[in-house]
């Protein structure tokens, strides 16, 4: 699904990513740990193609295609989607209109999706205007449900979310990633799991979201370098116990 090879990125004069190698296969969910300022958001922004993130070396391959130089919208239309940590407010653009715009087919069961996220009351509000932390996350997920990307990049989906909403947010993320266990007459869960194609890359600062989402592989990003790959829970435990200082030993 995604293959990042020796990716070096500058943001302004600063080198923020230093030789990232990462592969995400269809059906996999990866978690990215790392302290503030380690380059986690920069990695997601670079994958999505935002201006300002200048790739100085390396390639990004998505679905077998080199997208390193592709525009943001082209990447999105190829099946890449992202949930932003601090999305901008778009004055006058209704959330309802935005969700409709997100759908590639322009046909989306808007009310149904909004109900799923308990977000019906926000459809007539200006996009992200005065939304609380949890509301922003739900707005982002609603747009992603409409967009239905194959690889979802989620930037701290749990930050600023109250305990009640985090369960809902976890459920919807699982749904986006086709990981929601549910009864289905036609196919068994195992059968569906084996055919699962959606993939995800999640940033977490606290690791709290792991209580709600089952991830396959965990990585630690430290000072622009991916230092550790392994079982996400084990990695988290290690960080909780010894702090990111421990990661430093592997980076140097």
């Amino acid at each position: 699904m995604l293959k990042v090879e020796n990716l070096w990125v500058n943001l302004g004069d600063k080198e923020v990513l230093k030789g990232i190698n990462l592969e995400i296969k269809p059906g996999e969910v990866h978690i990215l740990f790392g302290p503030n300022g380690s380059g986690k958001t920069s990695l997601l922004m670079t994958l999505m193609g935002f201006s300002g993130y200048q790739v100085t070396k390396g390639t990004i391959i998505f679905k077998g295609k080199d997208i390193t130089k592709l525009g943001i919208d082209e990447r999105a239309r190829l099946g890449l989607g992202m949930s932003f940590q601090r999305p901008p407010t778009i004055k006058g653009l209704k959330t309802r209109q935005m969700v409709a715009l997100c759908s590639p087919t322009k046909e989306v069961p808007l009310v149904e999706l909004a109900a799923r996220l308990k977000f019906q009351d926000f459809l007539e509000r200006d996009l992200n205007a005065g939304f609380s932390g949890g509301e922003l996350k739900r707005s982002e997920l609603l747009q992603l449900l409409a967009q239905n990307p194959d690889l979802v990049l989620l930037d701290e989906p749990e930050s600023g979310v109250d305990l009640e909403s985090i369960v809902l947010i976890g459920d919807v993320i699982n749904e986006l990633l086709e990981r929601e266990p549910s009864r289905n007459k036609e196919k068994s869960f195992r059968e569906r799991r084996s055919k699962r194609a959606k993939a995800g890359l999640l940033i977490t600062h606290t690791g709290y979201i792991l209580n709600y989402i089952d991830a396959d592989i965990g990585h630690v990003l430290f000072d622009g370098v991916l230092s550790c790959h392994g079982n996400p829970r084990e990695t988290l435990k290690c960080i909780q116990k010894m702090g990111y200082e421990e990661c430093l030993r592997c980076v140097v």
Binding site: D73, A76, I90, L101
Partner: peptide, 26 residues
């Protein structure tokens, strides 16, 4: 930032601009 945000949802640059302008003239 606003244009790119909408582009990340699959809108072309011109479509993103139009949506923002339409909102501005709300």
């Amino acid at each position: 930032e606003e244009i790119e945000y909408l582009m990340a949802r699959g809108l072309k640059e011109s479509e993103a601009t139009a949506a923002i302008v339409r909102g501005f003239l709300n």
